[in-house]
Design a protein around this nucleic acid. Sequence first.
DNA 1: ATGAAAGCGCTAACAC
DNA 2: GTGTTAGCGCTTTCAT
Lengths: 341, 341
Amino acid sequence: MTRRNSRQQHLTLRDVSEASGVSEMTVSRVLRNRGDVSDKTRAKVIEAAKRLGYVPNKIAGALASNRVNLVAVVVPSLSNLVFPEMLAGVDEALADTDLQPVVGTTGYDPEKEERVLFEMLSWRPSGVVIAGLEHTEASRAMLANAGIPVVEVMDVDGDPVDAAVGISHWRAGYQVGTEIAARGYKRVGVLGTKMDGDHRARKRIEGLERALAEAGIEIVDQVAYSGWSGFAKGREMTAAMLDRTPDLDFIFYTNDLTGAGGLLYAWAKGLDVGGTLGMAGFNAFTLLDGLPLKLATVDSRRREAGQVAAKIIAGTHVFEGDDRRVELTPTFLPGDTMRPV
Amino acid sequence: MTRRNSRQQHLTLRDVSEASGVSEMTVSRVLRNRGDVSDKTRAKVIEAAKRLGYVPNKIAGALASNRVNLVAVVVPSLSNLVFPEMLAGVDEALADTDLQPVVGTTGYDPEKEERVLFEMLSWRPSGVVIAGLEHTEASRAMLANAGIPVVEVMDVDGDPVDAAVGISHWRAGYQVGTEIAARGYKRVGVLGTKMDGDHRARKRIEGLERALAEAGIEIVDQVAYSGWSGFAKGREMTAAMLDRTPDLDFIFYTNDLTGAGGLLYAWAKGLDVGGTLGMAGFNAFTLLDGLPLKLATVDSRRREAGQVAAKIIAGTHVFEGDDRRVELTPTFLPGDTMRPV
DNA sequence: ATGAAAGCGCTAACAC
DNA sequence: GTGTTAGCGCTTTCAT
């Protein structure tokens, strides 16, 4: 393995300037389309830049202009589908701008989040999009003092540093609870993750519990699993739960993937899914469209959250009033796995 | 309006220097753990930096040191699961280093890719991870002249600019073809995307065609769909194809999600999936584990590709020989949807 | 172990 | 329309 030259020989504005016989300043103007430059000069510069293969140095440009076209996006993980989806929303909305996302992951660890934030803020990004509202005091202080727009996404149940975009997971859970009650289910099981940092899943369950309690319905069984949420996990846990508590008439999953696993399991077993046994998941993953039975779910609108967050950073979002909080509506989709009201 | 205020309210090394009574240079040394500094001085500096909430300016640092801890990652899209998965691999492997991924998407458009690359290279990243081997001449030139490690991932069928990591999609397709032939299937249908920029899916089909041709098997029906690959698409297309060509005995899907859609459809219809009707997808999406029937598939090892790519950039990957190409083996997984040999 | 000076490659501000 | 000058906030280098 050869060691590269420690100091890279990149071309500079000066090289283009010399090759074109135009001053560095004018070269800079041409390359940024700024200010008036004659067509003749412009042509000379562009030709020279292209011929030499000049690539500008944004580091120097950013330092001089105090402008950085980077947007920091901080998420717990890229393995849970919801975060890439939110990121895709950010990316989509930034495509119209000259902003570029920089991604950092925290592994659901607040201390790691703090380090990642520090790291990213030291690049002086134009804005920060960060998942969730729960951060360390130090993280909140950094964000508050950064002097840039900060958008906390995918949750609005809490106190944002600056702006917040997303659904209320508590209210979404509450709504599922009322729908369960309205349909006459009585013995509910809950299947969720036990991940500490997953505040959103916790809030969903809390909302659900409240709605059920208000309707006098008890949660008769509850399991928290650890590890990755997929069909297999949903399948196993559902089998175990139905085994242990056979008279359940409803199962709520905090995640569509485990829900779909449970659904396929119950369906294959010949249980009356959607009749005597109700089921609901959460998130409305598009990729599940086309299952033989459509799982009841709630659209958590993470993609839109990403889009709106990006627009806030880009300065193109218009807030209603002066509340920098955008609460999206978590559409409830009954699918085929809950009986009619 | 003073000059300083009009620019920004960020703290500088000078502020920490003044607050601690230590020279800027020594403050810089402390904050980077470089060179010898007395414990007493170090403590003073750290205290001041923390108290003031100092966040270093990496832009200035990068300009002065000519070192940037950013890694450019360029992918066609974030909506196709394979790319976030590869990105997760990159992220994982970079977690041990001080490198940080910057993501750019191209929308499968070579011209957009060119612009995105130019943009990213102007940040002088420490390396580039880019999906695929097909790029415009200008893109290849930029990459070749960047003077940094460039890793083309998720494909090795072609001529890399620098390093390449991934499977051969052609050979993976070929292998599926031989497995189909070995199991005595005779009338094969192929269901793929018609997306122009999806070279990998194309190569898989080409490899498959070759293997089948060598075995004297014909592809009797083929459909190319456009749009997003999900269960629903696989379901629809499968229904349509079986309707049109009822005597098919095998369907190959270039994507697991469409495959799973087809599988669930056929299974619900009571077709003898895995017996008279064989099926195979591609990619081995973990999230599908737990389907009532396991779809035959091929692990395209995109996560590992991302990990290895990141290690190459970080300089911790050891190549075998002096070939900067790492060909991963695309494990064939027969699942339950192909009859025994 | 610490400090002073020079300058990284670019752009803001101002001159012409 | 084009050029000149003076930094941006750090790190390198060299001195002490």
